[in-house]
């Protein structure tokens, strides 16, 4: 309803920004790998990997899914834990 643009038009506007951002991520990952030591035990490295996997899915809520990868879990029973 609030998005009447054609995808070709969106691509026209977004192609170069997407290309630039993908390149930035690729270069940053290379930079991580060039550093000394291992990140195998760092949860943030796994989060990045999981977020990249989401980009490859055909879903229409990838931004939301990526956000949730980087979010702490919500538990319904938090009030009991806090006694509130």
């Amino acid at each position: 309803m609030f998005n009447s643009r054609r995808s070709a038009e969106v691509l026209e506007q977004e192609f170069l920004p997407i290309r630039a951002k993908v390149l930035e991520v690729a270069a940053a990952l290379d930079r991580l790998d060039r550093g000394a030591g291992s990140l195998a035990s760092d949860a943030r490295r796994a989060q990045i990997q999981a977020a990249i996997q989401i980009l490859l899915r055909p879903d229409d809520d990838r931004a939301e899914q990526v956000q949730l990868i980087f979010s702490r879990q919500f538990r319904d029973d938090w009030r009991e834990e806090f006694d509130i």
């Binding site: 956000q67 949730l68 980087f70 979010s71 938090w78």
Partner: peptide, 14 residues
């Protein structure tokens, strides 16, 4: 902010 947002927002709404 950041990793605390989702959990905190849900708590606030509760």
């Amino acid at each position: 902010h950041l990793e605390d947002k989702y959990q905190g927002t849900r708590m606030i709404l509760d």
